[in-house]
């Protein structure tokens, strides 16, 4: 079986999760992998909720939607409430504990970081919390390399924001280093 990782990035509208999903998928493609990024507007997608799904695989991706994610990023309490329980057993749940105060029961291993607060304090803009999160996701899972992620990032952000975004990405990778885990395929 080809190695496949499914990601669900969830939070509130305006947190840039779709862009983060696009960059993640883009990076995977730069490595010669297959990737699909799909918006999913289920019945839960209301009240400003936002969700991006990414599938990365060495093989063909037929069904384009995430079934049960290996990795969930929850950047709001709402998102954590909705998706914490829907992760593969032994998978990864990364929560932004700037906003997620209660982590519901989950079959996943939980990693909490104050993502938004760190973005604000260490990079200077909470706006780039999505990029910090992206660095963490990549760092923790090894799904894509730092080099390709940087390339993908630079190709999809507005001119003039490069150094800010690269700083955010670096912070994410650094945070990930404080843990050492790999997602089981």
């Amino acid at each position: 079986m080809p190695r496949t990782i499914e990601f669900r990035l969830s939070g509130s509208g305006g947190q840039g999760l779709i862009l983060a999903g696009v960059i993640l998928a883009d990076a995977a493609i730069r490595e010669g992998k297959n990737a699909v990024q799909a918006q999913s507007y289920g019945p839960e997608a209301r009240g400003g909720a936002s969700k991006a799904e990414v599938i990365i695989s060495d093989g063909e991706i037929d069904y384009p939607k995430v079934v049960l994610p290996d990795v969930v990023l929850a950047m709001s309490q709402d998102a954590a409430d909705k998706y914490a329980g829907k992760v593969k057993k032994g998978g990864l749940l990364i929560v932004d504990n700037t906003y997620v105060k209660n982590v519901p029961p989950t079959p996943a291993r939980v990693y909490g970081f104050p993502i938004s607060r760190l973005a604000r304090e260490k990079v200077g803009k909470e706006l780039v919390a999505n990029i910090v999160a992206l660095g963490m996701l990549a760092g923790l899972t090894g799904a894509v390399s730092r080099q390709t992620l940087e390339q993908a990032l630079l190709s999809r952000i507005p001119r003039g924001t490069e150094s800010l975004n690269l700083k955010a990405l670096e912070l994410g990778f650094e945070m990930a280093k404080t843990f050492s885990v790999k997602v089981p395929a």
Binding site: I29, K33, Q37, A38, P64
Partner: peptide
């Protein structure tokens, strides 16, 4: 909508 909005390689 699925094909219209999805991104892939």
């Amino acid at each position: 909508e699925v094909i219209g909005h999805m991104r892939e390689r």
